[in-house]
Amino acid sequence: MICKYCSKPATIHLTDIVGGQKKITNICKECAEAKQLLKQSDNDLPGILQGLISKHIGKEADELSKLVCPDCGTRYMDFRAQGRLGCPKDYNHFKLGLEPLIEKIQHSKKHLGKIPKRNPDLSGKRSDEILKIRQELKKAIELESYEEAARLRDLLREKESPDEF
């Protein structure tokens, strides 16, 4: 099939129904563009980008919906529904979703205020340790090994009080 206007190979076939009669126009891409026969949306770049973006966001939202904090068991979706996080570690586990949200409500994502002078738990390392000791303590009590429990209790006390480091 060749183009109705320039005799180049036709790649676009427009179908019009005029007065109940089907009419097919074969046309090449260049002529179609020149005569603006194509609908705007068919080669609308922003539209295509939008499609890609929403596809991408969809994937991200899907990822977010699967996030669960291993420390406190809070799901990212719980937070979105209730507006409250479950534990300080959620800020790391949900960072993907939280960061843009924080930026939106706070117009910033960087703390510029006071910093604890003494042993701030910067990386959350200490709370990891505390959590681990507390779990061990629970286990020790269950197993009735009271000497070990006493040792862990003292250790916990030490870790919870930065003053005594």
């Binding site: 300080p88 800020y91 994502k109 960087k110 703390h111 006071k114 910093i115 738990d121 910067l122 930065p162």
Partner: peptide
């Protein structure tokens, strides 16, 4: 702050 360990994050603060 000398007596307890506050939850603090390098980027997000308290």
């Amino acid at each position: 702050e000398k007596k307890v360990s506050y939850a603090f994050h390098e980027e997000f603060g308290y």
